[in-house]
Design a protein around this nucleic acid. Structure first.
Lengths: 222, 222
DNA sequence: CAGGAGGTGAGTCAAGCGTCTCGCCTCTGT
DNA sequence: ACAGAGGCGAGACGCTTGACTCACCTCCTG
């Protein structure tokens, strides 16, 4: 009995799987986990419930696959600007971070992850990287480069990076989660980033009186 | 006019209402909105389902009443330290803020509000004040006092306050929401606050080159 | 002792997750 | 090239759970 590879079926299955994931993404992001019925997912995907259950044996598995697929999608790595101009470099990285945070769907995704994190262990491990971890890494690399170039005094690049991103996120992102319909216009976003840059520049240009360099806020993965 | 005062019935009703709210608080904070069944709320409260529905005609009304009752409970206003020592003042306020954020139940409450904010308009309006708005107000008052005393140069107390609290919250609170079981020990919390204080001191001591003073991050209420 | 307000327990109805069988489409042996 | 077979997809089904009600009972007030 040859275990032949029916390529056609595989192709159709992949197509359906993609359709299911797309429909599930829209519905999960809109209504949350419990409010989303599998019948509606199948209907919006244009497939039947049996097909759905062939691909994802349980609702939880569909949910995890959906969230991971959405989280994997965005940009992989952020390019660090060349050192030499601290203000310009921080502005560029801050802008990029704010762009990721205010992208449509980001707030809904994070809301979903926060809501269901206690129930899904698999998610807790892998989801912080979505927007913050790459930005944190890029910012750390950039600050290290500036320091190696002898242009700034930074005790712990990780701590400074966490502070910088924290200031931006608190201004442009977190209120959106609590207030739902909240939004901030382009000019206010720009001003928030600029103020964060000013504060960081003040800190990094200031001569360091720190006795030791301790890392904090970079514990994205235990 | 039969505006009689049957005090006994009222008393029993209030007692049951309090028991229901306590049970609902525990269950909602633990399992979220949809995972909490009213039968279990009634059971844990020691009353019958019919009694529950006499007090709260619908599940949504019980939920809103529960969240608002929990949110109203904490400390009302934060006392601002006296001006004179910027480092000490910021440390005190930062510590107090971190204490509120890491208090047991705060993370669960915020998680619940974030998860259900799109569905409950009443909540969206009144819940940001829980921990951040009082701290923001106290910090703004404190920075203004320091400025009036001529000890620091601060363009916008609101912006600086938002930055300071944002740095702390990003280090000690938000990871807890995404990672669920996440926790940070006392020493790391202290170091994060201290680093935030250093950064703010560097910014506020630095001579201001800001052309105009714009407020950002203080839009807690439209 | 009568009236009535509130609590109680047994329901009702709907919705949704997870199967089960039938019909259709594609692939292989001659 | 054609017929049979195997697997996939579609729609109906069961069973549980959970948000809400109705006839009675208990206990206080006047």
């Amino acid at each position: 009995m040859p275990r032949e590879l029916p390529e056609y079926h595989q192709r159709v299955a992949d197509q359906n799987r993609a359709a299911i994931l797309a429909a599930a993404e829209a519905l999960f992001l809109d209504g949350g986990y419990d409010r989303t019925s599998l019948a509606r997912v199948a209907e919006n995907a244009g497939v039947s419930k049996a097909t759905l259950f062939k691909q994802f044996p349980t609702k939880a598995s569909l949910f995890e696959a959906t969230v991971l697929a959405v989280g994997r999608a965005p940009d992989g790595v952020v390019a660090a600007p060349p050192p030499g101009d601290l203000h310009a470099g921080l502005m560029a990285l801050g802008r990029e971070y704010a762009t990721v945070l205010t992208r449509p769907g980001t707030a809904e995704l994070i809301r979903l992850v926060i809501a269901e994190a206690p129930r899904f262990a698999e998610l807790r491990e892998r989801t912080f990287d979505f927007g913050t971890l790459p930005a944190l890494a890029a910012l750390g690399r950039y600050l290290r480069a500036e320091r190696d170039a002898g242009l700034v005094t930074v005790d712990s690049p990780e701590t400074s990076a966490a502070q910088f991103l924290g200031m931006i996120a608190s201004a442009v992102f977190w209120p959106r989660l609590v207030h739902a319909g909240w939004s901030i216009d382009e000019e206010e976003t720009h001003r928030a980033i600029e103020e964060a840059v000013r504060t960081m520049v003040a800190r990094l240009a200031h001569t360091s009186a720190t006795p030791r360099s301790g890392g904090v806020g970079s514990r994205g993965r235990p």
